[in-house]
């Protein structure tokens, strides 16, 4: 039994023991998402446009994560729309910069690993880099978005008379609370992945200027900071979209109720 498989089993047992049915749902979502991700990569190698594959993949992954765990509901629909808007906004924001900074593909520090490979593989790596950044932040923005929209839904259920602006405000407040812990989660995850590279720079006596200008470092920094930008952008977007959808539906309901009363 390999380590990976054993860890999968441990995680599955823990999730079921703790969460019961919801736990197994969480676990299978994880597996589904991994499979979707793998299919996305396969499609990219078959020559499909990487950015289109990424956007469609994001739609599928966020739908699975949101609807399978939390059910189809106003709050999950609001989250899905917000996640997609932020994915598109981030692509627009970073795509040009990534292309200009030329951080695609592999750096000279990875030369040893790619020596025996053919590097001319008919895949535009400057687009792949954008896909990588989007996929990295996808999980985080789904997490933040569903937390905000479900809390806003709770508030709306408790206080039906709440105004639209104060609902948006409380959504923003919840988002800001999450911001602190979420940046930590991502930061430590990235720092862990970053360690060997930083050690490499230290062992081979890179100067700070060399580090800042190197391809591999820039790629990591772009990934970290873009994730940060993603989780900041998702806060106001979710707050606004959720309140719009909640109010949209209730005004219809209220109209129906009024009609019934009349």
């Amino acid at each position: 039994m390999s380590v990976t498989f054993a860890l999968f089993v441990v995680l599955f047992i823990l999730m079921i023991a703790l969460g019961g049915g919801r736990g197994s749902k969480s676990f299978f979502t994880l597996i589904f998402n991994l499979i979707v991700l793998f299919i996305m990569l396969r499609l990219m190698t078959y020559g499909f446009e990487p950015l289109k594959v990424t956007i469609i993949g994001c739609i599928i992954i966020s739908s699975i994560t949101l609807f399978y765990i939390n059910g189809i509901h106003k709050k999950t629909i609001a989250s899905l729309i917000s996640v997609l808007l932020v994915v598109l906004a981030t692509i627009l924001l970073i795509f040009k910069m990534v292309a200009e900074a030329k951080i695609q593909g592999f750096g000279k520090e990875q030369a040893e690993e790619v020596t025996y490979m053919s590097l001319y593989i008919h895949l535009d790596f400057s687009k792949i880099v954008t896909s990588v950044i989007i996929i990295a932040l996808l999980g985080a923005i789904i997490d933040v978005s569903i937390s905000i929209s479900s809390s806003m839904n709770e508030i709306f259920l408790i206080d039906n008379t709440i105004s639209k602006t104060s609902l948006i405000k409380s959504g923003m407040n919840i988002g800001k609370d999450i911001l602190g812990t979420m940046t930590n989660t991502l930061l430590f995850a990235y720092i862990a992945g970053f360690m060997t590279l930083i050690l490499w720079f230290g062992v081979y006596n890179y100067t700070i200027l060399e580090v800042i200008n190197s391809k591999v470092f820039c790629e990591e920094i772009f990934q970290i900071i873009s994730s940060g930008i993603g989780i900041i952008l998702i806060i106001p977007v979710t707050a606004i979209i959720t309140s719009m959808i909640l109010f949209l539906k209730t005004t219809d309901k209220q109209k129906k109720e009024l009609k019934n009363k009349l």
Binding site: L11, G105, F106, T185
Partner: peptide, 28 residues
């Protein structure tokens, strides 16, 4: 239970994304 699933997802995507270029190269 509410947060467990999405958190695990966050970590999976944050980690795996970094190795995508290498995976694509190997696939090709």
């Amino acid at each position: 239970r509410d947060i467990m699933g999405t958190m695990a997802n966050t970590l999976v995507f944050a980690y795996i994304s970094g190795s995508i270029p290498m995976i694509l190269l190997w696939m090709k």
